[in-house]
């Protein structure tokens, strides 16, 4: 473990915690928002897509564990979903150029869709609640919109930061 790797790890951890705290304190408190942007998902996606599969998976798992500890009575549930999303966004990296500005938001929305549908199936369909139209309109769509906006704003600076940090300084 060299110094530059530790530095990158600390920066990623700080960004992730900041995203989680903003998501859970500030954005969920704003009265005019119907929902809050899923910033932990955005971070996972960007780290997987602009970084690598491994980085995306670790970011997703850590963020998911935070969500689990605070808001879920089962630990490991969000972590598993976000782990898979981190991996998939790393896979997408090999299909598209990571400096393309139009593709990432679309992939982000697909990730969010995956997240919501897994959520819906595990917590609602298994309890025989099938009101998918209502959930789509009232819960998924506002979240998609806000996550999309957050992704568009955050993608460029954070992916730039990641690529800059990835460069190994020549000795």
């Amino acid at each position: 473990m060299s110094l530059y790797r530790i530095r990158n790890f600390i920066i990623a951890a700080v960004l992730l915690i900041l995203a989680f705290v903003l998501q859970s304190t500030v954005f969920s408190r704003l009265p005019f928002l119907r929902s809050a942007p899923n910033l932990v998902l955005v971070m996972t996606f960007i780290y997987g897509y602009a970084g690598s599969k491994i980085v995306g998976m670790i970011t997703g798992m850590m963020g998911g564990l935070m969500l689990d500890v605070f808001f879920c009575d089962v630990i490991g549930y969000h972590a598993l979903i976000l782990l898979i999303i981190g991996f998939i966004s790393g896979v997408w990296d090999s299909f598209f150029y990571s400096d393309d500005l139009y593709v990432p938001p679309i992939l982000l929305i697909l990730s969010d869709l995956f997240y919501c549908i897994v959520y819906f199936v595990v917590w609602y369909v298994l309890k025989a609640k099938f009101d998918f139209g209502y959930y789509l309109l009232h819960i998924m769509l506002p979240e998609f919109l806000l996550t999309f906006i957050a992704g568009v704003i955050l993608y460029k600076p954070i992916s730039l930061l990641i690529t800059r940090l990835k460069e190994v300084p020549e000795q």
Partner: peptide
């Protein structure tokens, strides 16, 4: 490290955590 192997390992850890918790 093969990312696929890591995915299986971390996924397994998550499942174990879900069951244990």
């Amino acid at each position: 490290i093969n990312p696929k192997h890591l995915l299986w390992v971390l996924g397994g850890i998550c499942l174990v955590l879900i069951i244990l918790s």
